[in-house]
Simulated assay, not measured.
Amino acid sequence: MSTRKNFDPEFKREITQVYLEGRRTATSLAEELGLHVNTIYKWAEQFKTDPENAFPGSGNLKPEDAELKKAQRRIKELEEEVEILKKATAYFAKNSK
């Protein structure tokens, strides 16, 4: 059974820059670090897409993802409130007759 290795964002950034600058190949880096070569490619793609927020870390989200999650949570709360109010309206309408 293998254990998953966790690398901090700074380490990923350094390895990615070494690969992207052409100083080392993804294959040689992967062999040295004991990773699959696709991991290096994935890190490089994340870095090229958004260098500032490429590796947010475990449990952390990019700012736009955090906003989206907050909005989704608020929508769910409001939908629950609407359901409660519908039930309350039906209850009072039924009992007011």
Results as ranks from 00 to 15, higher is better:
32 E>F: 03
24 R>W: 13
21 E>R: 12
94 K>R: 12
35 L>N: 01
73 R>D: 15
40 I>G: 03
45 E>I: 11
77 E>Y: 04
17 Q>T: 11
33 L>D: 10
85 L>C: 05
74 R>E: 12
21 E>S: 09
96 S>P: 00
1 M>D: 14
50 D>W: 11
76 K>C: 12
7 F>H: 04
71 A>F: 09
30 A>K: 08
96 S>N: 08
35 L>Y: 02
14 E>M: 13
68 L>E: 15
31 E>C: 04
20 L>I: 05
6 N>T: 13
29 L>F: 03
56 P>Y: 00
93 A>Y: 02
37 V>C: 05
66 A>C: 01
56 P>E: 00
77 E>H: 04
62 K>G: 10
75 I>P: 01
83 E>D: 14
5 K>T: 10
24 R>Y: 14
93 A>I: 02
31 E>V: 07
9 P>R: 08
6 N>M: 12
12 K>R: 14
47 F>K: 01
61 L>G: 10
44 A>S: 09
31 E>D: 08
48 K>D: 05
59 G>W: 15
5 K>N: 09
28 S>R: 12
41 Y>C: 06
51 P>E: 05
80 E>T: 03
23 R>Q: 12
19 Y>L: 02
21 E>A: 10
9 P>S: 14
32 E>K: 09
48 K>L: 13
94 K>C: 08
2 S>C: 06
59 G>S: 08
77 E>R: 10
12 K>H: 08
11 F>E: 15
64 E>R: 14
8 D>G: 03
90 A>F: 05
4 R>F: 09
97 K>H: 03
46 Q>D: 04
24 R>L: 11
48 K>E: 13
19 Y>W: 04
11 F>G: 07
45 E>T: 11
89 T>H: 12
16 T>L: 00
87 K>H: 12
97 K>T: 06
49 T>R: 14
85 L>A: 03
52 E>F: 05
41 Y>I: 05
8 D>Y: 04
48 K>T: 07
60 N>K: 15
5 K>I: 13
32 E>Y: 05
2 S>N: 06
81 E>N: 00
45 E>C: 09
8 D>M: 02
41 Y>E: 08
17 Q>L: 15
95 N>Y: 06
42 K>G: 02
16 T>R: 00
50 D>Y: 10
67 E>R: 08
95 N>W: 04
48 K>V: 07
57 G>V: 00
74 R>C: 02
18 V>T: 14
